[in-house]
Design a protein around this nucleic acid. Sequence first.
DNA 1: CAGGCCGCTGCAAAAAATGCAGCAGCAGGA
DNA 2: TCCTGCTGCTGCATTTTTTGCAGCGGCCTG
Lengths: 302, 302
Amino acid sequence: MRHLTTFRYIDAVVKAGSIRGAAESLAITSTALNRRILAIEDELGVPIFERLPHGVRLSSAGELLIHHIRNQMSDMERVRSQIADLSGVRRGHVSIACSQALLPYFLPMEISLYRKEHPNVTFGVHVRDREAAERALVDHTADIAIVFEPVRLADFMTLMRVFQPVHAVMGHGHPLASKEVLRLSDCLSYPVALPTAPYGVRHLIDMAMLTAAARVEPVIESDSFEFLRNHAVAENILTFQIPIGLSEQTSTGDLVARPLDRRDVPAGVLYMGQLKGRTLPVAAARFAAQLSASMAAKFEVS
Amino acid sequence: MRHLTTFRYIDAVVKAGSIRGAAESLAITSTALNRRILAIEDELGVPIFERLPHGVRLSSAGELLIHHIRNQMSDMERVRSQIADLSGVRRGHVSIACSQALLPYFLPMEISLYRKEHPNVTFGVHVRDREAAERALVDHTADIAIVFEPVRLADFMTLMRVFQPVHAVMGHGHPLASKEVLRLSDCLSYPVALPTAPYGVRHLIDMAMLTAAARVEPVIESDSFEFLRNHAVAENILTFQIPIGLSEQTSTGDLVARPLDRRDVPAGVLYMGQLKGRTLPVAAARFAAQLSASMAAKFEVS
DNA sequence: CAGGCCGCTGCAAAAAATGCAGCAGCAGGA
DNA sequence: TCCTGCTGCTGCATTTTTTGCAGCGGCCTG
């Protein structure tokens, strides 16, 4: 949209931290960009950026403005998609910030299902930890966030919440593979691989260890769930995962997943939500509705 | 703001109902205006206006867009005023849609009080009946609406609500002037002047008459409260008014105001509010806060 | 102290918006 | 029935705005 050019430019400058840098990413001259900024500062009567030796930084007036700009841009996007909607075709773009656990099965399935109905809708999937996901909502980088055990929920509006009991994941031939439900104490006798990040699954396990006054030294630590899963098969050791990260046919494949007894490790909660106070574009809203339904069907609603 | 020019133009076309008409009011050629509209329709891929033999009308896509446009314009205004705010001077404009009863004393007092603190804030006061007031909020013609006994409240967010018991107003020498509280039956023996409009005070009186199975034939009908008040003195007849339309020193002047017994005529409710979901500009928000305080101090909160 | 990065400005070229004149289409009145 | 008056729209010349190029001075870093 032409009339938003200046706004897009400003947004780029904020992101780049310098006019020249932004100009390059926008494929225009720094002159043009600089002039637009001077022009809008002239209109507002106040500088939007503080000039630093190595670039620019938002002034407090700029903070106010960039907030408006981002609202404006995503709102325009929503209107465009509503307009496209009533002319028949459902178009649009849905941007999702989510934890790793959504990547292997859940999101691919849901997205392909949605795109079967609406092939003109495009998707962006960004792996973010819990705080970054919320930040992505705030700066409109993402429409929807799906996070496990979020910390602060200031700007987050929950759309759906399901329990995710921690599962132990292991290779087919592991001694524990035969039991239906595992106690935490069962696991302690075997080598385990754990995610590094001090939140999510790792956090729940750590807390459980604390209350059980037990200790576990992970043989392997990784920030990639995919690696942990693969390694569990390769070396035949234990790792932990939440069910949304596991295929429904897991038990028939190479992997076996067994829930931990909820007396030992309480079930985590997976949150799906959007930015508080924002009206989502049609496509994003519909997809969120689909996710809600699907999560509610597959898991226990919290 | 330059980047909103197209939006301002579109808004003008919507208001004027024709491109040429809007062009004239905008002091540009119809050519330029026409081209801008074609351009944005091209960008959206959908016509914004239906072309009629005698002008244009919004298409359904246009309805969506104009809504967005008005939100954007007033939101930009708010940001501007916030920015102006942090540079020291409080500037801004507050637009009020209200019933006649606010005109004689209440609003002039409140506005002058506010302007004593913030001389750079300007005001617009528009007399609107209840429906028109709500419409003014929706199309952002007004920031604040103050209405008596509003009908539907779909887009109206109430900020303050006070009881306004109906008062009988009469000249100093009227026989009823000596009583402190009047029964409706007291009034029926004397000639009365009533407002025409079938809402507000008139509505309450009519309803009371209905339940009392009584009838009153007004000697004078007028849609101007000011006229009714003046005429009450001139001819020494009764009329009715709500307290916010009466000076606090009424009883010491030419006029005497006496409340009607609330068993006969229930007290009406005066609503002050804004458009639901909108963030008011700083100046309007502060003024609304002052109004709230003042109304709460003077009247019984509903 | 030189090199590199920064934001900013004068001037000319390119691009966009505007105005002028004139077109066709439709409605209502003589 | 034609005619007048209104509508939105288009080709072309003009004006205004935006952009790019080159170069300036300032600041930090190595």
